[in-house]
Design a protein around this nucleic acid. Structure first.
Length: 625
DNA sequence: CCTTTACCGTAGCGATGTTT
DNA sequence: AAACATCGCTACGGTAAAGG
């Protein structure tokens, strides 16, 4: 580890190659590329944003859009490079001169007027103003970007390289459908399966001391409120920047010396942060310490981001005044899991032999699984990853830190009554039950149920949208543990314990008895349950241990099928989760109706052919609802 | 008073459309 | 034909206003 002259730590170049398929600056650059120069111009909402002085931290990263029509591909690439280059400049500027200076530098570089985004406008901005602004011009879909990486994370020589070669890493990381198992499905012809390459044993061993994932320099902050006072979505929080702090205690010796003073603004500044896991079982509540990445700059022309930061890690207050660093961002679990697989650290626990391939986000029947592992014997294993953040508390005096919100607190007896005889157990799921259906996560229950069904079936079900094979017979059929081999399908659930202070994992029957029962049933059906933890030091996660999966006292697989059916039905029909698409469809249908009536009159003069097509497509749309 | 509804941000996949 | 761009959709759930 090299300590730079300004006191910031720099990452050795070797670290850049540890992450799966090029996490890091390459991804950030790719994100910029993907979002480069969308057709959509800046919306009315965006203009109002600027007038309202929306995000305090945004001034430093905002760019003026290139107005006008559709840019050529070359122009887009050039723009992407320019953005990336700007990001690099900003990175060094932030490190050396602080955010205000960086913002000024960006203004000069781009020759833009950032507008009147005075910081004090944000504080005390009337709620009604924010709301009316949001309603006046509904925001369109934001372009892709990478929240996990910060252009500032890497030293210049690392960041500069991928800026010139965007959109390489993510393709490999994601792994395309149409891979090994799909035999080049008809709907995605020609798309090469870019499955993750696994390491051989020697390569994996050589990486043993390097992090699974490195988020680079993070910014420390204290949560003031969520939702933010200015953006009412629960996924956005107001965060007050803290002086330099180091997640994980000894992290001072590690990389993520998140210095607010040099990083994302001055100490005490308020920023808006994306909080994708919301309160995270009571950990992310007012006063909580969080560690954030800075959001990559948006492409010119894209609607500006509402948030300047994204929460990555949080401190969970533990008994005795200690705190555990917990991986907060839901995406961390998937990325960490992929790297664990890539390094062959899960093979023994999965017990299905040697893994030869890894694909992500494949759909089987109704379920989209996180990963598909291709095994040496030709069989496949579906791996569902759950991010585990919560740990129980000892039921002794002082066991729960004062001021800790009650949500997410599950107490276990300590027979001796002594704190030192207690070791935490990681829990999933956590949090309050949904009032309507009285479970914490109907989705998790659905996933486990469907994985169990697939595992029992023992081979692939007809894929959604494909022609069903009527004569498809299961290889497993639920009669014991079937043989492996070509076509064989097995299932596993990985509970990625995103902290290092737990000795075991168990499903949290206190929060969700049905989930615990369904999981127990899955285990009895042969679904592998694996728990593995990681150690956060600074902004880097290191492989931890394989933890035992245990069940609380009295938890059995005897769930009530009617109750399960009720939950699954709720999951399938909950209108809330589709509000956006439902609304979009309604609006589109309305527009279409108006357009169609206009066109019908028009094309009647031309023979009516086009109007017929319009009608067909619109009726198809309605069929799919 | 209780229940329902509208609303918010971000990221990624898959399908479709467009350019090279 | 291949590569790239764009769109539609999905996931995640708390809050406040509106409705009964």
């Amino acid at each position: 580890m090299i300590i730079a002259s300004d006191g910031q730590q720099q990452r050795p170049a070797a670290d850049a190659q540890q992450a799966p398929a090029g996490a890091g600056a390459a991804e950030a650059a790719a994100g910029s590329h993907a979002g480069a120069q969308r057709k959509r111009g800046r919306t009315a909402r965006a203009a109002e944003d600027a007038a309202a002085g929306d995000a305090v931290g945004r001034a430093a990263i905002e760019h003026e859009p290139a107005p006008g029509g559709r840019p050529t591909r070359r122009a887009k690439l050039a723009a992407a490079s320019a953005i990336a280059a700007t990001a690099v400049k900003e990175a060094s500027a932030r490190r050396t001169r602080g955010a205000a200076a960086a913002a000024a530098a960006v203004k000069e570089d781009v020759g833009e007027d950032v507008g009147d985004e005075a910081e004090d406008q944000e504080e005390g901005q009337p709620k009604a103003l924010a709301r009316s602004r949001a309603r006046a011009a509904p925001r369109k879909k934001a372009p892709k970007r990478q929240p996990l990486e910060d252009g500032a994370a890497e030293p210049e020589e690392v960041a500069a390289e991928p800026a010139a070669t965007p959109a390489k890493a993510p393709a490999a990381k994601r792994g395309r459908a149409g891979g090994a198992g799909k035999a080049a499905g008809p709907k995605s012809p020609g798309k090469a399966a870019a499955a993750v390459q696994l390491l051989d044993e020697a390569e994996a061993a050589a990486l043993a001391a390097t992090p699974l994932l490195d988020l680079g320099q993070l910014v420390a902050g204290k949560l003031v409120r969520r939702p933010s006072a200015s953006v009412k979505t629960p996924y956005v929080a107001d965060i007050q920047l803290l002086p330099a702090a180091h997640p994980g205690g000894e992290a001072a010796a590690s990389s993520a010396a998140g210095a607010a003073g040099e990083g994302g603004g001055s100490e005490g500044d308020m920023v808006l942060a994306h909080a994708p896991a919301m309160d995270c079982a009571g950990m992310v509540t007012p006063g909580a310490t969080v560690y954030m990445s800075k959001s990559a700059p948006r492409a010119p022309g894209a609607p500006p981001a509402a948030t300047s930061h994204a929460i990555q890690l949080v401190e969970d207050q533990r008994p005795g005044g200690t705190a555990a660093v917990v991986g907060y961002h839901p995406q961390l679990a998937e990325r960490l899991a992929a790297e664990l697989v890539r390094r062959r650290l899960l093979e023994a626990a999965l017990g299905a032999g040697r893994v030869v391939g890894l694909e992500s986000q494949r759909t089987f029947g109704n379920t989209r699984v996180d990963y598909v592992l291709k095994m040496e014997d030709g069989s496949r294993m579906l791996l569902e990853v759950k991010n585990v953040v919560c740990a129980d508390f000892p039921d002794v005096a002082g066991g729960v830190p004062p001021g800790r919100p009650a949500v997410g607190v599950y107490k276990v007896p300590v027979p001796s009554g002594r704190l030192e005889h207690y070791s935490p157990t990681a829990l999933f799921p956590h949090g309050a039950q949904k009032p309507k259906i009285k479970v914490v996560s109907d989705r998790a229950i659905k996933h486990v149920t469907e994985l169990t069904a697939l595992h029992k079936h023992g081979r692939e079900l007809p894929e959604a949208g494909s022609v069903p094979h009527e004569g498809d017979e299961g290889a497993g059929g639920g009669k014991g543990e079937p043989e492996g081999g070509e076509g064989r399908l097995r299932c596993a659930v990985l509970f990625l314990v995103n902290r290092s202070d737990c000795a075991a994992f168990r499903p949290c029957h206190e929060a969700d008895p049905l989930f615990a029962q369904v999981l127990k049933a899955a285990e009895e059906a042969g679904v592998k349950l694996v728990a593995y933890d990681v150690v956060w030091r600074g902004g880097a996660a290191f492989a931890g241990r394989h933890l035992p999966v245990v069940f609380g006292p009295g938890v059995t697989s005897a769930y009530d099928p009617a109750r399960l059916a009720e939950v699954l039905h709720f999951n399938a029909t909950d209108p809330r989760k589709n509000w956006k698409s439902t609304k979009a469809k309604a609006a589109a249908a309305e527009v279409k109706a108006v357009v169609a009536s206009g066109k019908a009159a028009k094309s009647a003069r031309r023979g009516g052919k086009k109007a017929k097509q319009e009608e067909e497509s619109s009726s198809n749309d309605q069929d799919s609802e």
